[in-house]
Design a protein around this nucleic acid. Structure first.
Length: 422
RNA sequence: GGAGGCGUCGCCUAGUCCGGUCUAUGGCGCCGCACUGCUAAUGCGGUUUGGGUUUAUCGCCCAUCGAGGGUUCAAAUCCCUCCGCCUCCGCCA
């Protein structure tokens, strides 16, 4: 949720952000109007409520006819107090409904526009020249089938489309990758966490996954719980409602979890292999910090992602995502996209978002500041995920169908080369 | 799954039976001031969080006793639902 004070103090800035996102700038004034109605309704209620309370005290003290008279008076206003209370509450809900429709205010420098309006920040490595090597690159699934590393058909039989089994060297590669990621996180001072993957509605909402992503999320109706699509949700809820002490620096966590996504809006997209699936594993970094440190923490997360991409040794680029392609909570987002030889293009492998105070405000996560308790900033970023396997398999494939394990992963995978099964 | 107990403003705690001087008691901790060569001790004052009013301060007001409903002129207190923790019983990987 955005800070209502910012709307009042600098409405033009918020409107500019809305325009850059392709959202409606008129919302800003609608929220301000709704807030004025909220204050008016609240004041009206509070004044009569104060009257009711002071009458109540007199009632307690009074005797005889005085008491009768006071009781008549206070009984007369009771129903009005109730009505005013209800309309004050309604005015708050109306304001909040409008307020939650406004996305986080983008950071200066974020490119305006939609999905295709990103700016490439850097380009690392050079795609392999398979033609020069004399063979055509296979896609990750073809390679994986040769290695008996991924079984899509049985995945579909057991759980439906977009499910799969990782088996043999595929399972070992994933475990090795995730362990390498966790080791890096620990080395850099992140607290390793294995998080709940089912959370309460309030946590799901707090993390920002109900308002705009509702149909991408699995919900267990019988228990009113949600399956999380990332450990970001549980880690965002971890310090919900708390006042954090940053004396020892930001709180940095690395959450390991299985992730579940309905992929409702992506029928027919990336149907082959494990690029887009309903269930996968991921190590997600999550940081709570002083808002003043948020941008430097964002760079730190991006550095972590670069290190991880260096470990798997694939060509990649980093893009500064355009405003319209940001999540509701993000003020800026950097994606690292790896080269997929089978598609001859870069595809997202990691994504790191600076949510500034937007997410923490809804979650009620604060810190001791100079002016009392202040809302903290939160940031998140991918460290390693199942999709990395696609990039590893395709970029390190050999003409004979084997795949060379990137050197940095070998101690974790326990293999130097993945050899096709007989 | 069943039975019972508990949940109070950082921590501990009084208050709940029997609704109204609860503007929630006291202690610990913490902050400020005084006294003192320093520390300690002592004394005095302050110390939930959000919101409204206010240029701001001071102040005043509203809400907040696990959460949400209800009863009532009035709820920490009575009723209902839910959540969490503890004890016992049952079932079970």
């Amino acid at each position: 949720m955005i800070d209502i004070k910012l709307l009042a103090d600098d409405p033009e800035r918020v409107k500019a952000s809305q325009v850059a996102r392709g959202d409606d700038p008129a919302l800003v004034d609608e929220v301000l109007d709704a807030d004025a109605r909220r204050r008016a309704a609240l004041t009206e209620f509070e004044q009569l409520r104060a009257r009711q309370k002071s009458l109540g005290k007199e009632v307690a003290r009074a005797q005889g006819p005085d008491k009768e008279r006071l009781l008549r008076e206070t009984k007369a206003i009771a129903s009005t107090v109730r009505e005013l209370s209800a309309s004050a509450e309604a005015s708050i809900s109306e304001r909040d409904a409008l307020l939650t429709a406004i996305g986080n205010v983008i950071i200066d420098g974020v490119p305006a526009g939609g999905e295709d309006d990103y700016v490439v920040r850097e380009l690392v490595g050079t795609p392999r020249d398979f033609a020069a090597e004399g063979f055509a690159p296979k896609d990750h699934l073809e390679i994986a089938e040769g290695l008996k590393a991924i079984d899509m058909a049985r995945g579909a039989r057991v759980a439906g489309s977009r499910f799969y089994f990782l088996q043999g060297v595929g399972a070992r590669l994933e475990l090795g990758l995730l362990n390498a990621g966790m080791a890096l996180a620990v080395e850099r001072g992140f607290v390793p966490m294995i998080t709940p993957t089912l959370v309460l509605p309030e946590v799901m909402r707090g993390a920002g996954f109900i308002d705009r992503h509702a149909d991408e999320v699995y919900r267990l109706e019988a228990d009113d719980l949600f399956l999380t699509g990332t450990s970001e949700v549980a880690l965002a809820g971890y310090h919900g409602g708390e006042v954090i002490d940053f004396a020892d620096g930001p709180k940095r966590y690395a959450g390991w979890s299985t992730c579940y996504r309905r992929e409702a809006g992506s029928y027919g997209k990336d149907t082959r292999g494990i690029i887009r699936v309903h269930q996968f594993n991921k190590i997600e970094m999550f940081v709570y910090c002083d808002p003043a440190d948020a941008e430097s923490e964002h760079e730190r997360l991006l550095d972590m992602e670069r290190e991880m991409l260096a470990k798997i040794d694939v060509p990649y680029r980093v893009i500064d995502t355009a405003a319209g392609d940001l999540g509701q909570s993000a003020a800026r987002k950097f994606d690292a996209e790896a080269w997929f030889p089978s598609q001859s293009r870069y595809r997202e492998l990691t994504s790191t978002s600076n949510c500034t105070t937007f997410q923490a405000r809804r979650l009620g996560t604060r810190m001791k500041g100079e002016r009392g308790n202040e809302i903290v900033a939160t940031l998140n970023g991918t460290l390693a995920t199942t999709r990395f396997l696609v990039a590893i398999l395709e970029n390190h494939q050999q003409p004979d169908g084997s795949v060379v394990v990137p050197e940095a992963l070998r101690p974790y995978v326990g293999l130097d080369v993945l050899i096709p099964a007989p």
